[in-house]
C-alpha cells in the first residue's frame, strides 16, 4: 500500500519517529511484522486482510521503549491494546505515533490456508480506528455500534454444557498444552517482567506440561487478563496446540460487561474494573 510507505518514509526522514512497526508480505496468504528504521527500508510495508498480528505487543519491549518515538501500524482492534498499555502506564500517548488503518476485517486460521473471517471481526466496533494520529485506507464497512452488547456463540454453547462436560472438554483441550508460552509472548497485555509461572519461591504453577500445571497456567493467564483482554485473539492464533484459549477470555469479557458494564480498550480515561470497586458490587454469592 502506497500511502503507508509514503507515511513511513515521511515520518522517518523528518525524524518524527525512529522506528516504524508495520507489516510485510511473506508468502501468498501470509503477512508478518516488519521493523523499519530507515526510510529506504519502508518499501516492503503492506496492509491487507492477512495483517492479523497485534503489533502493540512490541511496544513494551525495552528496545522499543528506548526509542525517541515509535510509529505503529494499527487496526482499530490493535489500538484497544495501545489504549490499555497507556492506561496501565506501559506506554504514553506521546511516545506512540499511531498509523490507524481502516480495516474491512482480517482472516483467521493458520497459514498457508487462512480462510475463515476472524471471529473478532464479526463483532468489530472499530473498523475505523478510534484514536490515531493519521488514518489510512479506504472507508471500511460500518462497525457494530459501541453500545451494543456482544455475545459469542461459542461461549454460549460452552455455557450450556453441564459441569462435567465442561471439565471433560477442558481436560482434553488443556492436556495438549506444551507450555511454550507463545500465548503469553504474543499477548500485548502480558508484559510482566517476571511472569508468575517463572517465579519459583514459591512455585505456584507446575512448570511441567502435565495437566495440573497446564490447568493452573491457563486459569491464571485468563484470570490475569480479566477486564484487560482486548479480544485480539493472538494467543489462540499462535498456539501450536490449537487450544481455544479465547473461549476463556471471552467468557470473562462477557462477565465484565455484564457485571461492571465495561469493555476494555476503548477509553483512555477509563479505570480497568479490577483496579477499582463499587460499594454495591454484585455479591449474592457471598454469605
Amino acid at each position: 500500500m502506497k500511502e503507508i510507505i509514503e507515511k513511513a518514509k515521511e515520518l522517518l526522514s523528518q525524524g518524527t519517529v525512529d522506528l516504524v512497526i508495520g507489516y510485510e508480505q511473506c508468502g501468498d496468504k501470509q503477512c508478518r511484522p516488519l521493523f523499519v528504521q530507515k526510510p529506504e527500508e519502508a518499501d516492503k510495508l503492506v496492509f491487507n486482510e492477512f495483517c492479523v498480528h497485534n503489533l502493540a505487543t512490541y511496544l513494551t519491549r525495552p528496545e522499543v521503549k528506548q526509542t525517541k518515538r515509535v510509529a505503529i501500524v494499527a487496526k482499530g482492534c490493535d489500538i484497544r491494546a495501545i489504549v490499555n498499555l497507556i492506561i496501565e502506564n506501559q506506554s504514553t500517548r506521546e511516545h506512540v505515533y499511531i498509523i490507524g488503518m481502516n480495516c474491512p476485517g482480517v482472516v483467521s486460521g493458520k497459514a498457508p490456508n487462512p480462510t475463515k473471517p476472524h471471529t473478532k471481526c464479526q463483532t468489530c466496533k472499530v473498523r475505523t480506528p478510534q484514536m490515531s494520529d493519521v488514518t489510512l485506507g479506504p472507508t471500511p464497512p460500518e462497525s457494530i455500534p459501541m453500545d451494543k452488547t456482544i455475545t459469542h456463540p461459542d461461549v454460549e454453547e460452552l455455557k450450556k454444557k453441564t459441569r462435567e462436560e465442561k471439565w471433560a472438554f477442558w481436560r482434553e483441550q488443556l492436556s495438549k498444552c506444551i507450555r511454550c508460552y507463545a500465548c503469553r509472548q504474543a499477548c500485548p497485555m502480558c508484559y510482566c517482567n517476571r511472569c508468575i509461572v517463572d517465579l519459583n519461591t514459591p512455585q505456584w504453577i507446575d512448570t511441567r506440561s502435565n495437566l495440573r500445571g497446564n490447568l493452573d497456567w491457563n486459569i491464571v493467564r485468563a484470570y490475569h487478563l480479566s477486564g484487560r483482554c482486548i479480544d485480539c485473539g493472538e494467543c489462540e492464533r499462535v498456539c501450536p496446540a490449537n487450544i481455544p484459549l479465547m473461549l476463556l477470555n471471552r467468557t470473562l469479557q462477557e462477565e465484565v460487561k455484564e457485571k461492571f458494564d465495561f469493555e476494555s480498550g476503548y477509553d483512555l480515561e477509563a479505570c480497568p474494573p479490577l483496579t477499582v470497586f463499587e460499594k454495591d458490587d454484585h455479591e449474592n454469592f457471598i454469605r
Binding site: W167, A168, A222, E278, F285, I286, R287
Partner: peptide, 27 residues
C-alpha cells in the same frame, strides 16, 4: 471490596472451566 471483584471474575472463570463451585464458599 477489591477481593469481591476478583472473586466475581474468578467464579465466572471456574464455572466455564467446569470446576465445582459448590466446593468454594465465600462469606
Amino acid at each position: 471490596f477489591n477481593a469481591r471483584r476478583k472473586y466475581i471474575m474468578f467464579r465466572a472463570l471456574l464455572t466455564q472451566l467446569g470446576v465445582d463451585l459448590d466446593r468454594v464458599t465465600f462469606a
